[in-house]
Structures are given as C-alpha cells and as structure tokens.
C-alpha cells in the first residue's frame, strides 16, 4: 500500500512508524504540512495515489483543517476529522465521555473570572484548571486556595489568548501517584503503561516513570466505549484509578486496591515511543497492522 505520513516534525514516534512501514515494503510519502497548499476541490499532488494518510501533525490547528480537507477530497485519513475535532478540545472530549457513560472527572466550564471562581469554590480545594487545547501537561494548574485561584484566573484573563478565557475547571482526582495510558486501535488495546511521578502531573513528557500495565476487563470495556465515543482510530486513552484507599502512601499506592477508573482524556495523535520502550509489545507493528487492515477494508468497500 502507499501511505502518506503527514508531519511537521519527525520524532522518534514517526521514525518508528516509518521504519515499520518501509520494512514491510510499503511505499511511504512523507508529506511536510508546512510545504502544502490546500484548495477546495482537488488534493495537492503529494496526496495523489496514496491509499491512506496518517495524520501525525503536532499542531492541533493544522491537524483539524487538513483532516477536513482530506475528507472533502475523499482521501482516507486516520484519525478522522471527526475524531480529531473531539479529541483536540478538552470540553468536547469530556462531553463525549460523559454522554457515552464513561466515568470522567467532574468538570465545569465558565467564561468569566467571577463565574470561574464560583465554580472553583464549589469544587473546593484542591481542584484543577486546564487549558482546553494543549498537551504534555503544559499550563495546567492545581489550585489549592482561593487566593491562588484568583491569581491564576487573573493571569489567564490578562495574558492568555481567547482560548484561555474558556475556564475548564475539574475536580482533583486523588489518584495513586500515577495514571494509565492505553494505546488502542478502534477500541482494542495494543498495550498500556502506568506513568508514575511524585508530581501531580504524571505525563511521560514531564519525565514520569513508566511501567507496563496489564489491561483488565474494566479498562478494556472503558477503552472500547471511550474510543467509540470519539469516533475510533489509533488513540491514547488516559485513565486514573479512583477510590484508592491510601493514595498518598507510596508503599501501598502501587499495589493498593481501587474502586474504579476515571477516563480524563483521549489523545488523537498519540505518542507511543515511551510505551514502546516500556512494554514487550511492538507498538508500531501493531499500528501498521491496523493501517493495513484499514486499507484492505477500504478496498473491499469500493469494489
């Protein structure tokens, strides 16, 4: 098959994908989004004769528009424009999870500093403020007092661009010092890991310690439902364990029992290098298996 890989940076994730594709003898067109121009009716030349495009754009804005263009040109793209739309925005993400009946942290959105402060006071301390767009734990705030809340809101209102005036406030989940990342294709887990840190942000990009995680039936069920809720695809589903007996105790937190999980986020251009290093599963190989089956299905559908 011929795969178009849309990118603006080739990171280790993209490199792993590229080598897997080439090793299997697939033709790969690397498409640097920065060089392309998109018209309304016909795809740019670089997209000619590709069987499927893999969107690996780092910039959300680019990813959102280009997947729309590809839809309009009838060029198959993963993940889809609809999935990118829901996953790139934390508000849409939360709404989709709630609607699908997937447990997700209690969240409220307010549009002025006054109403946001009311929301925060109602949640109590600590609670969390997140930017609606963004990643890698950047610009996330754990709010521990009213005076901190006031300062953060004022900063956001004064210094941020308009998206920071959408105040996304969330309950603080007393997780056991770690969260769980599951990478799945159309709801079927490929592999999973925990990300542990003494900091409340446990992003791998922030240097959290990663360990393989064995997917249990409940996680499997939640991942399937969550994936469907955002339109499927190659996704990173992030969960936290809830109802942990002693979340602050580092001895018990790794082994301690918990009541359930809550899904805080689904990522649509998922990074998998950390996961690939942490587990025995060959993550890029599983991703390429899935791409191949996508193309096969697409070909069957058109004959």
């Amino acid at each position: 098959m011929k795969v178009g890989l849309l990118y603006s940076r080739i990171r280790r994730d993209e490199k792993l994908l590229l080598s897997e594709l080439r090793d299997r003898g697939h033709e790969v067109a690397k498409i640097d989004v920065r060089d392309e121009q998109f018209g309304l009716s016909d795809p740019p030349e670089s997209f000619e004769s590709v069987d499927i495009v893999v969107d690996r754009c780092l910039a959300t804005s680019r990813s959102l528009y280009i997947t729309r263009f590809l839809d309009a040109y009838d060029v198959p793209v993963v993940n889809s424009a609809a999935t990118a739309d829901v996953c790139s925005d934390k508000v849409k993400n939360s709404l989709a999870l709630e609607r699908a009946g997937v447990p997700t942290p209690a969240t409220e959105v307010a549009f002025t500093t006054d109403s946001a402060l009311e929301t925060i006071e109602a949640f109590g301390y600590p609670c969390v403020i997140k930017p609606v767009v963004g990643s890698w734990g950047r610009l996330m705030a754990k709010v521990e007092s009213r005076s901190a809340a006031e300062a953060i809101l004022e900063h956001k209102a004064t210094l941020g661009h308009y998206q920071h005036k959408v105040f996304y406030v969330q309950e603080f989940v007393e997780k056991p010092g770690r969260d769980i990342r599951v990478v799945a294709v159309d709801g079927e887990p490929i592999a999973a890991m925990t990300r542990s840190s003494d900091h409340w942000l446990t992003n791998a990009a922030k240097g959290a310690d990663v360990q393989p995680f064995e997917v249990d039936d409940r996680v499997r069920e939640l991942v399937a439902t969550a994936s469907e809720a955002v339109g499927g695809g190659l996704l990173g589903v992030d969960l936290m364990e809830t109802g942990v007996s002693e979340p602050d105790d580092s001895e018990t937190r790794e082994t301690g029992s918990h009541a359930d999980y809550t899904v805080h986020e689904i990522n649509h251009t998922v990074e998998f290098k950390a996961l690939n290093d942490a587990v025995d599963v060959d993550v890029p190989a599983a991703a390429v298996d899935w791409l191949e089956s996508n193309v096969e299905r697409g070909t069957e559908a058109t004959v």
Partner: peptide
Amino acid sequence: EAPELEEDWGE
C-alpha cells in the same frame, strides 16, 4: 534551528 514549540502542539 528547529521551530519553537507552539501552544497548540501536542499529542
């Protein structure tokens, strides 16, 4: 020199 990270960049 690589371009700076932008705010909407991420996974």
